[in-house]
């Protein structure tokens, strides 16, 4: 029984991440609104960030800023990778939103299915 509790507590963070990831995935797949799709993409992205940072955590460790008083640090490598990823994520979001603005100018709508039906008309 204590084994089971240990497993659940140990993997709880991953499960939260998976729930968030699937929320984001669902929003991207099931919604037609392009802005909402982008928000879903961001949610998915942030869940991956949390996953990586979780990998880097060491119990009893502190933030990886070296000091006399500390001996256990969390792993700095995931932090660096995610720093890069956050900034790249914003770059893609900005580009996506710019595309949405252009699509709205060209089609007068930001709903995926309406754009498709306009394209199908001769």
């Amino acid at each position: 029984m204590s084994d089971l509790i240990n497993t659940v507590l140990g993997l709880y963070n991953y499960w939260i991440v998976i729930f968030l990831m699937m929320c984001g995935f669902y929003i991207v797949v099931a919604h037609d609104n392009l802005i909402k799709k982008l928000v879903g993409l961001n949610i998915f992205q942030a869940s991956v960030f949390v996953l990586y940072i979780t990998f880097g955590k060491v119990s009893g460790g502190t933030a990886p800023i070296l000091g006399e008083a500390f001996h256990v640090y969390s792993n700095p490598l995931p932090h660096v990778l995610i720093l890069t990823a956050i900034v790249v994520g914003v770059a893609t979001t900005a580009l996506g939103l710019a595309l949405v603005v252009r699509i709205n100018e060209a089609y007068g709508t930001i709903e995926d299915d309406e754009i498709h039906s306009q394209d199908d008309e001769p």
Binding site: N42, A46, F49, V50, I53, T54, G56, K57, V58, G61, T62, A63, P64, I65, Y73, S74, P78, H79, I82, L83, I86, V87, G89, V90
Partner: peptide
């Protein structure tokens, strides 16, 4: 998410996420 990063010892990441995200 930024708050969570602080809890997980990633202060630099939390900083960036709060500002940028």
């Amino acid at each position: 998410a930024a708050v969570m990063f602080v809890v997980l010892d990633a202060v630099d990441v939390a900083f960036t996420e709060a500002a940028v995200g």
